[in-house]
Amino acid sequence: MARKPDLRRFPGFLAVTLLCLFLLYAPLVIVAIYSFNDSPSITLWGGVSLRWYEDVFWGLEADKFKRAAINSLTIAAAAATTATVIATMAATAMLRAGQFRGRSFSFGLISLPLMVPEIVTAVATLIFFSAIGFQTGILSILIAHIVFCIPFAYLPIAARMEGIEDVYEQAAQDLYATKWQAFRLILLPLMTPGIVSGFLLAFIISLDDFIITNFVKGAGVETLPTAIFGAVKQGIKPNIMAISTLLLMVSITFVTLSYFAGRMGQNRKSNPTGET
């Protein structure tokens, strides 16, 4: 067999790699650095300070940001919780109810939102809400978030459940557990890492969402991303960098937690190497 060409030998490989990394991360790094800038200008460096963080929490716009943050966190918590419950039930039906008609169709349905352009979903959702005469506001945001969070919660949960052989539930039923007890006492605890991971992912997806939220939020209701967008439209002040940096930190924390939760307990298996 021919050796695979070593990608690193191509001329300019290093340069392209560095350029990509630079384009990806430079803006984030610059925003993070300039959030500590002690100057009202967004381009001139005036020394290190926390004044823009103070401004975020106690400044003129603090109230607006606080209300938006509370909205965001409430919606994210509620949407992620609901989406996780629905995703867990969906995964159980998909992976534990045996072959049923429309199984692959259902899977397509669950993961479709990942592929539909968000703007399309946003417009469609808005049209849907106005068609049925649904008042836009916090509730409409919540419903829209639940819907697009489901596939994000579903994927880690289903991945985890696929790794759990159904012999454990059979053993439980053999030991006089009802189907529900086998689910609650055996499958659910074994799935916990996947569920936590799915929840965290759904939470951060909801927290970060802008496009759909912007369409369905209605007048006067803001989440953090829409509030930031609103503020930017009136000119970028350094406090936007501070608040963006805070949001970035929250995102990184949640994604990291989600990753570790998904890996948790991976090597807690009791299978001997016997054949099946």
């Binding site: 052989e165 012999v167 454990y168 059979q170 053993a171 439980a172 039923q173 053999d174 030991l175 006089y176 557990a177 009802t178 189907k179 006492l185 055996i186 605890p189 074994l190 307990g265 807690r268 298996k269 009791s270 299978n271 001997p272 016997g274 054949e275 099946t276």
Partner: peptide
């Protein structure tokens, strides 16, 4: 259903509950 049959199984792959200690497994 299996849980109504007074019959118990030692599975080919044992299928011990990984999140329960030995006593909990036996008490199940």
């Amino acid at each position: 259903p299996p849980n109504k049959r007074p019959v118990n199984t030692v599975f080919q792959q044992y299928a011990l509950f990984p999140h329960m200690d030995v006593t909990r497994n036996v008490m199940f």
